[in-house]
Structure formats: C-alpha cells, structure tokens
Design a binder for these strands. Structure first.
Lengths: 165, 165
DNA sequence: CGTGAAAATCCGTTCTT
DNA sequence: AAGAACGGATTTTCACG
C-alpha cells in the first residue's frame, strides 16, 4: 500500500520541484532545500518505495506528433458488469489516454487524442462502438485546454533566494 | 510555433523511452538506439527547442498526498464571452488540474482532485459557483481510473538489439 | 547529422556523526 | 536520519568526418 507515510515539508518541497521538472538534478534540489544531495536521494527513494512517486514522464505535445484533436467521450454500458472487458479493449486503443469509471449518466469517461476529426470518427464508429458491452457514447471535443498540471503538492515556495550570486 | 518539424523514427524511439521514464539516462537510450549519447542529447535538445517536448514531470499519486477524490465537473457559462475571466479564476484553484473548453452542453470541463467529498463540496459551493460567469455545474466523481498514459508515440519497438558490438 | 573524446557535473554508495 | 566524501557514470560541449 501507499498509505501510512508521513510527507513532511521537505518532502513536499522536493516533490514541488520534481513535479515541474523530473530531470532536475538532485544536487540542485539539495541546494534549494539546504540539505545534502544524499538526503534528497534517500527521501526520493523512500517516497518511491512508499508508492507516493509513481514514476516520471516526459511531456510531449500531442499536436507536435500529429494529434490535433482532443476529445472526451462519455460511454454507457449495456451491462455494468462488463466493465473489466471494456477496459481491456480500451487499453488496446492507443488513442485512449485516460479512462475513468464515473458517477452519473455515463458509466465511463474517456479522454482521447486523434489525428483529426476523421480519425476521431473512425475511432468512435469502428472501434469504440464495436466493443461488446458498450451501448452508447457521447463525444465532447476539447477546443482548448487552458489548464494542465499535476495534483497540488505545495506552493512554489518562497525559496530562500540566495541574495546574490 | 511547434510545427514544421519532422520527427523521424529515431526521435520517436527516444520519446517512447522518455515518455515512460523521464529520468532514463541518455546513454542507456543511446545503447538502445544504436547511436551515440551525444546524438541523443542533440535530438532531445532540438525537440525541446521545437516545442515537441513540453517538459517532464514526476508522477505523484494523488492519494498519497491525501487527495482521495477525483472528479470531473461540467460547467455552464452565463455568457460565453466570460471565458477568459473564468479561466483566470480557475487557475488560482489548486484543486483544478485540467480545464477544457468543450463542445456540447457544457462550455467547460474541469478535472479536479479533492481531499474528500466534504472538500469537493466546499470547492463546488464556495469557490466554483461563486466565480462570475459560471451559471451551473454538474459533477461526475471518478470512482476508478483504469487508464492513465501519454499520447501515443510509438510501439514499444522490437528493439534492433545489436547482434554484437 | 553523427562521432569521439574531454571536462564538468552528477549519482549512488559508504562512512561518520 | 542527516551530512561529507569518494569513485564511477553521465551530461554537455566541441572539433572533426
């Protein structure tokens, strides 16, 4: 489990840096936090073992790879007990980047990236609608994503800001 | 702009590794790709400058930081021209991690993380509903996130596995 | 555009307090 | 647990093919 672990102020500060830049050198973090690099190393390792840190990812702009269309799809299931099978099928679709089981009129909410509207249409009609257990879908195209960030860790921190170089 | 850039097979392969692990050493990538570390470095740098790579992020499990509730909120605006002001207000809310302007009955779709249902309630009633320009909201709580990944870059690749050195 | 090597930096471990 | 220090690996730059 990932529970039963105390994340103190320094841990949060470490995370606040790494959440913004996963390749930030530990030594630089150490300087910002005022402790040694070894301490950073130990703390990060501990948080990884505790499951607080799930991994790290380079952020690629979908548009740069030719994925111009972002859309959310609300999915209704014909029988709610077919959830597992539907998930398995969705995992095989490279266009799907998120899949949630949600409350409300839709059982499942998907987020996906497609090359263009034609590609989106193809994915909806030829793939998603053909998955056994899926009865109906409703699509919301994202025209603009204004906010994209991680879960809140800590304020940017007043950073001791060494007076001068 | 981030356009007008050709991402070739090697670039895609580099990205496919870094998308899964942003801290993967360039030299290790170099070995997998069969070219030198300097070449990897140059390509990554070029992709950063071209805007293909937006940055890198450590992935933190929200639950480990006490954010047990993930929810999507569909927001209707009283006047669609108030979009900018609404976005500014939403950016100040640490609970909001995504904000999209979408087609369909809702003008805006939010994704947010809260500590618990009480916190969610407070955010909805005391904060979101008070933002000028927001007329109505509908909330979908995510009971389970089954898929979480980046935009599709490339298949894991059969890795040419250098026959010998 | 890739290579190879040099210099600076960083990582991960060990030892000490 | 935290800090200092060491050897080994990595990042980054540069001139050359």
């Amino acid at each position: 489990m990932a529970d039963k672990f105390e994340v103190d102020e320094i841990d949060r500060k470490i995370l606040s840096f790494l959440v913004k830049n996963a390749r930030m050198p530990f030594l630089e973090i150490a300087r910002e936090c005022g402790i040694s690099g070894a301490a950073i190393h130990q703390r990060v390792k501990k948080m990884e073992e505790a499951g607080i840190i799930a991994g790290s990812r380079l952020t690629v702009k979908p548009k740069a790879l030719g994925f111009d269309v972002c859309a959310f799809v609300g999915v209704q299931l014909s029988q709610s007990n077919q959830y597992d099978g539907v998930i398995s099928a969705l995992k095989l679709m490279p266009e799907v980047v998120e899949c949630h089981f949600i409350t409300g009129p839709y059982a499942v909410l998907l987020k996906l990236f497609c090359r263009d509207n034609e590609h989106l249409m193809e994915v909806l009609v030829n793939t998603i609608q053909n998955i056994p257990g899926i009865s109906n879908t409703e699509t919301f195209i994202s025209l603009n994503q204004a906010i994209e960030r991680q879960v809140y860790v800590k304020d940017p921190s007043p950073s001791p800001k060494k007076a001068k170089k």
